[in-house]
């Protein structure tokens, strides 16, 4: 099953490689990984999407927790949470495709954030499924490149993950 793990980690040089190294050394999956400093600059927040049986995910959580730089790890699947991912798509936009692409983007509440005579860059945020659906809705042959951030998430309401 897919799990989304949220990690608070000391913002130290090499902290990312400790987590990434652990996953590769123990053969755990990483579907996506995002990391950036938090409002407290000494801490980074990392979100890892992984998959595995409950036993494997429990081991992942314990192993990550054991890393000396990790302050906290929470499996967001254990409660209600929201998650979002950002995607940028560059498409070939000429002739009648220009309007058609704009319409599709509007339906998905995506925005065109850069345009030239022949291209658009479209920005879209949402769950991974929504991003996938948007790509499916586009004419494949028009997609020039895509980039996605991977998911990040937070617990809902009063569920607060702090150091």
């Amino acid at each position: 099953m897919r799990h989304i793990l949220s990690i608070l980690i000391e913002n130290e040089a090499g902290a990312l490689s400790r987590v990434a190294g652990l996953f590769s050394a123990r053969g755990y999956n990483i579907e996506s990984l995002t990391v950036a400093p938090t409002e407290d600059a000494t801490l980074s927040r990392m979100t890892i999407v992984t998959s595995g049986s409950d036993e494997v995910v429990e081991q992942i959580t314990k192993q990550v927790n054991k890393l000396v730089d990790v302050v906290k790890i929470v499996d967001l699947n254990e409660g209600k949470h929201v998650e979002r991912e950002l995607m940028l798509v560059k498409v070939r936009a000429v002739g009648k495709d220009r309007d058609e692409l704009k319409r599709t983007a509007d339906i998905f509440r995506a925005r065109v954030i850069d345009l030239t005579e022949k291209t658009y860059v479209i920005e879209l945020t949402g769950t991974g499924n929504k991003l996938d659906a948007f790509l499916e809705a586009l004419d494949r042959s028009l997609i020039l490149e895509t980039v996605r951030t991977g998911a990040c998430g937070l617990g809902r309401g009063e569920w607060i993950i702090k150091a």
């Binding site: 040089a13 090499g14 490689s17 400790r18 190294g21 050394a25 000396v68 730089d69």
Partner: peptide, 14 residues
């Protein structure tokens, strides 16, 4: 050194 030894130490520092 920190990279080479990372998987075989409890922790390391530069």
């Amino acid at each position: 050194t920190v990279g080479i030894t990372r998987p075989c130490v409890k922790h390391n520092f530069l």
